[in-house]
Nucleic acid binder design. Sequence first.
DNA 1: GCCAACGTTGGC
DNA 2: GCCAACGTTGGC
Length: 158
Amino acid sequence: MACWLFKTEPAEFSIDQLAASPGGIARWDGIRNYQARNYLRDRVAIGDSVLIYHSSCKIPGIAGTATVVCSGYPDPAQFDPHSPYFDLKASPDNPRWFAVDIRFENRFANLLPARNLKKDPELSDMVLFSNGRLSVQPVTDRERQHILSLAKVSPGPA
DNA sequence: GCCAACGTTGGC
DNA sequence: GCCAACGTTGGC
């Protein structure tokens, strides 16, 4: 089982919206970056663990966890001319962008602020800090374990 | 709102 | 294929 960090702007789609989705399941779509696309298309698998990261908000950080319930498939939004994610150059025969489905697992009692995680020696190698703009990124098992242990002790905003 | 870092585009 | 110009991301 692999682990991933998915970034989202909570104003667009938050972990609460995920939790409120039918069955706690939602499509993770609208990813328009090739490196992230490659992960969604080729690597993200059913049963993988996901850390949900809130970005571009008051306190950016990890908000909770989810599980992958459907691996990569063409993102329907790319074919919809009314969608902000429409892509003129994509076609069903030759899809350019991919989505996965995830199911809500847990919302941390206290969000883990990125500025705290950044100071944590256990997490110094996280992709989050070397390529902060990548919206789908791999997380090592060690990083995941550490983050989950932090979430349990509920450190809260420092 | 600023700005640094990074990604994409397009002329050559 | 290079690289300058431009656009986007995202923390602050």
